[in-house]
Design a protein around this nucleic acid. Structure first.
Lengths: 189, 189
DNA sequence: TGTACATCAGTGAACGCGCGTTCACTGATGTAC
DNA sequence: TGTACATCAGTGAACGCGCGTTCACTGATGTAC
């Protein structure tokens, strides 16, 4: 069953995209190769035609997810109102109840810290070079703004994790609302 | 090999304590029953003399870890200086490099969101009833103060997760420092 | 243009391994007589 | 006080299962002649 020129690349992209969603939903440890591949209509062994190992796929999916999250952010208007809307959307009830479509950091940040050195390096390179958030938040002071932006982002991810861990929906709603207030306060610092 | 009266309870406590540290270090999915039990000098099957399942142990270890974290917090002086010191110690380089001894939320918050309903309920009950943080941060307004306190706490946990995920130590140091600044700002809100 | 061959994405079965859990058993100690 | 027995924390082996990975193979298509 030989396929056309674009086929392999397209399949690889389908695997990366689908795996990213699965990892966010069930965690990296919690997502088996068989599940990841059957998600995309293939058998487990087909993974190794595209990646050297599961970890290789993890790194690729992570980069893709961080890029997607960056694009979601960039779609907002380049002003204070855009930033505020991003924060409100990020810490929304919809995001809380939809892990697969959400931010990779909210879903996986804790697990990334436990990954291999290679995977952490991939994460670090992608995050540190993601200038779009920083340059938008403080166009005049990029170096320290980058730290500020990433730290605020991590705080929002932590808030979302708490909201997702709480069974008490009302309490979780209040946490999200408080998270928005906190983020807005920090935006003006 | 029958043991004395206190023996079983002592062993159970040893398992819970040791498992809590292991879960924080390697994650819940990443800690096998054999490893958890050999950590404490027993064979895997001995787990079921103390707990009905691994999940049962997870819940017990989680409660114990949250209690310990609460005690660590309560040890600080009941004033603004105590709170500030807690924040600085929480977001310290030592905590970053020592997952096993650190805060269970920084290590496991993301994973808890993916746990069973029972485990999440256990977490929720323990967190919502942990009044010590809230009552200390705002003694006059407990209900909304609880939300404020837990949200700030989750933000600090997220910051620590980012610091642990970054391979660039200098950058991670800067994130921790920025996290302290952010937490102090929010303390005065 | 028609035919023979090379390519290679994906298959299906199997690999060794560790998972969580069960079970018949052990044997040191507490208890009853 | 001495002896027989009950208890039960922990053992060691096994259970079925899913893990990540390997491998010989397939067969539709692109390419060469």
């Amino acid at each position: 069953m030989r396929y056309g020129k674009e086929h392999k690349g397209a399949t690889r992209r389908r695997i990366i995209e689908s795996a990213g969603r699965r990892f966010k939903k069930d965690g990296i440890d919690g997502s088996g190769v068989s599940t990841l591949m059957s998600d995309v209509g293939l058998t487990n062994a087909a993974l190794y035609a595209h990646f050297s190992s599961k970890e290789d796929l993890v790194a690729a999916a992570l980069i893709d997810q961080l890029r997607q999250q960056g694009e979601r952010f960039t779609a907002y208007t380049r002003d204070r109102a855009g930033l505020e809307q991003f924060i409100r959307d990020y810490l929304s009830v919809e995001q809380r109840d939809n892990r697969a479509d959400g931010c990779p950091c909210a879903a996986l940040l804790g697990e990334i810290g436990r990954c291999s050195v290679d995977t952490k390096q991939t994460f670090t390179d992608t995050m540190v070079n993601a200038d779009n958030i920083a340059s938008r938040m403080a166009p005049d002071d990029p170096p320290s703004a980058r730290v500020k932006a990433l730290t605020l982002f991590a705080m929002m991810a932590g808030t979302m994790q708490l909201a997702r861990a709480l069974m008490d929906r009302e309490f979780a709603d209040a946490v999200l609302a408080q998270g928005v207030q906190n983020a807005l306060v920090l935006l003006d610092t």
